[in-house]
């Protein structure tokens, strides 16, 4: 099959601090790659982290899915960490061209992320569809709470390791009704005319006008 002219990227990130190899495995499965093809994705970029066996694990999963990937139009690549940050990859998933000269047609894809608040916030600001997969092995479950609360409000899709295909379906549907970040906070009656952080700082400083 000839490569399509439109580029659509799925960017998966496991973050820098904790190891989350099961998420890498969940993406590098025959089912998930087939689901990406079905939804017209051309690229899957995986940030697998700098943990000791991250690279090895990624390469092994790549070998296992080699025959499947040859048949598929999805081009898979991976890297451990990027000191320049993940902004460029997020923008690629959003469908923003890196260089103005490029005549490539870009389509908005999706970001799949661990539940780190910084990564979630970056994706929300970019307004790219986001699937958040909390790491079940982390003891501190406030990441799970954050993912649940945001999914409830329709900002993200709460994904599970064993149901990543379903999460992708949900994210494709979410694209049509994605909510913009930051929220306007208009629902907070006290915020009207008082402001958030600046308001509190002014009150404390006695800047009352």
């Amino acid at each position: 099959m000839a490569p399509t002219s439109t580029k659509k990227t799925c960017f998966l990130t496991v973050g820098a601090t904790a190891s989350f190899l099961p998420l890498v495995s969940a993406a590098l499965t025959t089912d998930f790659l087939a689901a990406l093809s079905k939804h017209g994705y051309s690229d899957l970029i995986i940030q697998y982290g700098s943990v000791a066996d991250g690279k090895e694990h990624f390469e092994q999963s790549m070998t296992e899915t080699e025959s499947q990937r040859k048949k598929s139009i999805v081009n898979v690549r991976g890297f451990a960490l990027d000191p320049a940050g993940l902004g460029a990859y997020m923008r690629e998933a959003k469908g923003i061209s890196a260089s103005k000269a490029s005549r490539e047609k870009l389509e908005e894809g999706v970001v799949i992320s661990h539940a780190g608040s910084g990564t979630i916030l970056d994706a929300l600001r970019l307004n790219v569809p986001l699937i958040v997969v909390p790491n079940p092995t982390l003891l501190d479950n406030h990441q799970l709470e954050l993912a649940e609360a945001l999914a409830e409000q329709g900002y993200v899709v709460h994904g599970r390791l064993d149901a990543l295909v379903d999460a992708l379906e949900a994210a494709e549907k979410m694209r049509q009704r994605s909510r913009e970040w930051p929220p306007i906070n208009s629902g907070v009656h006290r915020v009207v005319n008082v402001g958030g952080l600046a308001g509190v700082m002014d009150e404390e400083m006695g800047f009352l006008d």
Partner: peptide, 24 residues
């Protein structure tokens, strides 16, 4: 993450579209 959030909220405050809620 603490630094990231602090910078994010200061940025949001100084760029608030509503001048009455903006941090000067």
């Amino acid at each position: 993450g603490h630094t990231a959030e602090m910078i994010a909220m200061l940025f949001r405050a100084i760029t608030d579209p509503d001048p009455t809620k903006r941090l000067d």
